[in-house]
Structure formats: C-alpha cells, structure tokens
C-alpha cells in the first residue's frame, strides 16, 4: 500500500525534526519531569489528600503528569504542521503523485510516536522516584490504549488550529488551553477541595475522566463510569477534529 509507505516515509522526516531539535526534547521531556519533581518534593509536603499517605502522592499525580507530557508535545505538532503549510512544503508534497492525506497522516503518526516516547521517559522517572503500581498485564494494556487514544486525540485537535493559524505562535497556543484544562482537573488534587463552581467544572471535564481512569487502572481499582466517559470523550473529540482538520487541509 503506497498510502502506508508514504505515511511512514513522511513521518520519518518529522521524527528527524524532533530528534534534532534540542529545544523540543528539553521542553517535552524536561518540563513534565520538573513539574513532577516540584510537586512531589517541594509542594508534596503541604499536599494533604484524604486517605492517602504522603508517600503515595507521586502515584496520585503521575497520571496527570503523563497527560501533561502529551499536551506539551502537541505544541510542537502544531508548530511543525504550521511551518510546512506556510513555507510551501505542503505544496511540494501535494503536487507530487502521492496520496494527499498521507501528508497529514505523516504528521499525526510522528506526533503520536514522539508523544509516546516522551511519556515512556517520564513514566520511567516516576518509577525512579517511587511510583508503584498494582496493575495487572490487562490493566497495563488498557492504560497503554488510553494513553495512545489521548495522544491521538490531542494530535488531531492540534491539526485544525495549526492549519488555520496565521502565525507559528498562534499555531501552538491552543496547547496552553489543554494544559490549562489539565491544571483545572483532578491532576494534582481531588476536585472536592476546589471552590464549588470550579469543582463542578473540574469534575465533569474530559481530562478528569481520563486521569481518574488511568489512576484507577494503575491502582487496580474498579474504573466505573470514568472509563466509558473517557472513551466517549476521546473518540468524540478525535472525530470532530479529524473532520474539521481534513476539511481545512483540503482548502489550504
């Protein structure tokens, strides 16, 4: 299949971009690690979570940190798509006898690969500083699928923003939106302790569902409704962004 071959060739190019950009690697891997270390060693002492010994705080926040890693990566996905659009690279590829959608798929594939790699590194740091899990192999598979699903969702969500943005800065600004959503979720503290208005928002937004599901799976607890809600959010947002993204892509 030429479509698959072309997608792999094109994503190979973008993986080189990621690996050769020190800035990308530092931001995407080092920033979440700093947040993790800061939360655990600086603020961890003052964090009081009911029924949770302080030593387990790292296990509490790790799922949120993993999603932050993915969200940070999306800024670079958007950046690379926007650069290819503005500097004419899309024109070159699209005037060639290759499948038109392979160009976008190449970006999506390399983005997801890069996000998963950086997430794995951050997870490794988590283990080093005391993260422990009771997850069974099946639960590990579910966690992996959920993280892949989240990476695909965030990547596709970045596509319409990246294509519509007039400037490179505009292209990556949406990822701050996702980061903001992550901070106003149960990532660092239970939503119950938030002011009422904020709490009801934080409780019902997609990030909280995904974080709770991953947290429960790591702890080998019953996932409950969060699992289904996560899947609905992830699939729904991905489909809408995919539809919007390809529509804009066909016009630029």
């Amino acid at each position: 299949m030429n479509y698959i071959k072309d997608t792999i060739t094109l994503s190979g190019r973008l993986i080189k971009h990621n690996l050769r950009s020190l800035d990308t690697i530092i931001t995407v891997v080092a920033m979440p690690v700093m947040i993790l270390l800061g939360m655990v060693y600086l603020f961890g002492g003052s964090m009081q979570i009911d029924g949770l010994p302080h030593s387990q705080y790292v296990s509490y926040i790790l799922p949120g940190i993993l999603l932050i890693t993915i969200a940070t990566g999306s800024a670079y996905t958007a950046l690379r798509i926007n650069i290819d659009k503005t500097n004419g690279m899309f024109d070159r590829f699209r005037s060639m006898p290759i499948s038109k959608s392979a160009v976008l798929s190449g970006h999506v594939l390399s983005s997801v690969i890069f996000m998963l790699t950086s997430t794995a590194i951050v997870l490794g740091v988590g283990f080093l500083i005391g993260f422990r899990t009771d997850a069974s192999p099946l639960e590990w598979v579910l966690i992996l699928l959920l993280i892949i699903g989240f990476a695909i969702m965030v990547t596709w969500l970045s596509v319409p923003f990246a294509l519509a943005a007039k400037s490179i800065d505009g292209a990556s600004s949406f990822s701050y939106l996702i980061l903001a959503l992550l901070f106003v979720s149960s990532a660092f503290a239970p939503t119950d302790n938030m002011p009422t208005a904020l709490a009801s928002f934080a409780k019902h937004q997609p990030m909280t569902n995904v974080i709770s599901t991953i947290r429960d799976l790591f702890a080998s607890n019953n996932v409950g409704n969060d699992g289904w809600l996560s899947i609905i959010w992830l699939v729904g947002i991905t489909l809408i962004s995919w539809w919007l993204g390809t529509r804009i892509y066909n016009k630029v």
């Binding site: 190019r13 971009h17 950009s21 500097n87 004419g88 690279m89 024109d91 070159r92 060639m96």
Partner: peptide, 12 residues
C-alpha cells in the same frame, strides 16, 4: 514537478 515561490527545501 513544482518549485513554489518559497524555497521548499527542509532546513533540518
């Protein structure tokens, strides 16, 4: 083949 107005080489 098309060479667009902006040079389309990949600098990286």
């Amino acid at each position: 083949s098309l060479n667009s107005q902006t040079s389309t080489t990949d600098g990286v």
